[in-house]
Simulated scan of single mutants.
Amino acid sequence: MKQSHLRVTVLLLVAFFVATGFSFNKRMDLSHYRLNGMELCFNVPNEFDLIELRTSPVSYNLFLGKTYVGFKEALGFKESRGDYAIINQFGYMGKYQFAKATLQMIGIKNSENFLEDTYMQEKAFEAYTSRNKWILRKDIKRYKGRTIGGVYITESGILAAAHLAGAGNVKKFLRSEGAEGFADANGTSIRYYLKKFSGYDTSFIKANKKARAI
């Protein structure tokens, strides 16, 4: 019995010295853990740095200004609110509201494919505007910078009005000093388009008598 107690005592003493031997006999050398010269930057936010998570959606409006992209997007929004698939009650189609006859003139025969192809619609706008710029090239040069019918005339305003009313009607308006006007079926006038789309940079559009979308 005494021997068993002695064994237990010895084992406890051995365990104690093993567990505490390092602290009794020597101090732990941490010199090889030195961090001199190392760039360690740890930023832990405190309660003042925490930002409340935003749970409500935020919408941003892309600022396009008076660029060419701004011009065509503004015109597309006015025509159809930017809807590529729309057909209005008069049969005008797509984002820029083209008539079938206009599409055929710039090389587009299939109107169903046209409505489903956003790239083709953008090419159609570019081609049609290029044609109008060629037709109106002399009028742009002659009337740009003047005020006609109470509206300051710019190249972008002329091209927008031609999209609405056709180049021929814009010629009549300018050459009659505003006496011969035009309004579409919704009552939108050349004068309104000349003013609303004034001052955009349309230098990207090159005058081309035979411009085609495809």
Results as ranks from 00 to 15, higher is better:
56 S>R: 01
122 E>L: 09
104 Q>C: 12
45 P>L: 04
111 S>F: 05
94 G>P: 06
39 E>M: 09
66 K>Q: 08
59 S>T: 02
86 I>E: 11
110 N>T: 11
100 K>V: 12
77 F>Q: 06
79 E>A: 01
100 K>P: 02
129 T>M: 08
50 L>P: 06
108 I>N: 03
75 L>D: 01
123 K>C: 13
92 Y>R: 03
92 Y>T: 00
101 A>Q: 14
86 I>G: 12
121 Q>F: 09
85 A>C: 07
107 G>D: 12
104 Q>V: 15
80 S>I: 02
78 K>S: 13
94 G>F: 03
98 F>L: 12
121 Q>W: 12
37 G>L: 07
99 A>Q: 11
46 N>S: 04
33 Y>P: 02
95 K>W: 02
111 S>H: 07
60 Y>I: 00
128 Y>C: 05
52 E>Y: 10
75 L>V: 03
108 I>L: 05
59 S>C: 00
95 K>V: 07
112 E>K: 14
44 V>T: 04
116 E>C: 14
94 G>K: 03
39 E>L: 08
43 N>Y: 09
43 N>G: 05
114 F>T: 12
116 E>I: 15
37 G>R: 01
74 A>Y: 06
88 N>W: 00
105 M>I: 10
73 E>D: 08
103 L>D: 10
97 Q>H: 06
99 A>C: 03
103 L>E: 05
56 S>H: 04
83 D>Y: 03
41 C>Q: 08
86 I>K: 09
118 T>A: 13
126 E>F: 14
89 Q>E: 10
93 M>T: 11
45 P>C: 00
101 A>M: 10
124 A>M: 14
46 N>E: 00
47 E>T: 04
110 N>P: 07
126 E>T: 09
102 T>F: 08
124 A>W: 15
40 L>W: 01
38 M>P: 01
130 S>C: 14
80 S>K: 02
92 Y>I: 02
68 Y>I: 11
73 E>I: 08
103 L>V: 09
117 D>S: 15
38 M>S: 04
54 R>V: 05
124 A>N: 12
32 H>M: 08
102 T>Y: 02
117 D>F: 13
43 N>S: 07
48 F>R: 14
120 M>P: 02
125 F>G: 04
85 A>K: 13
107 G>A: 12
59 S>R: 01
70 G>V: 11
40 L>I: 01
93 M>W: 05
37 G>Q: 00
56 S>M: 04
36 N>G: 09
50 L>F: 04
34 R>M: 06
54 R>G: 07
123 K>I: 09
33 Y>W: 11
36 N>H: 10
58 V>E: 15
106 I>T: 03
129 T>G: 04
109 K>C: 11
119 Y>G: 15
102 T>H: 07
130 S>D: 14
108 I>K: 06
117 D>R: 15
80 S>E: 05
102 T>N: 08
124 A>Q: 14
85 A>V: 08
34 R>T: 02
69 V>D: 11
61 N>K: 02
77 F>S: 13
100 K>L: 12
67 T>S: 15
101 A>V: 14
118 T>K: 14
88 N>R: 03
104 Q>F: 12
38 M>F: 07
99 A>E: 13
75 L>I: 02
41 C>V: 01
121 Q>I: 11
41 C>F: 00
88 N>L: 05
93 M>A: 14
118 T>Y: 14
60 Y>D: 04
42 F>D: 04
45 P>M: 00
63 F>T: 10
42 F>V: 09
114 F>W: 12
65 G>D: 07
92 Y>A: 04
67 T>G: 06
75 L>Q: 02
116 E>D: 14
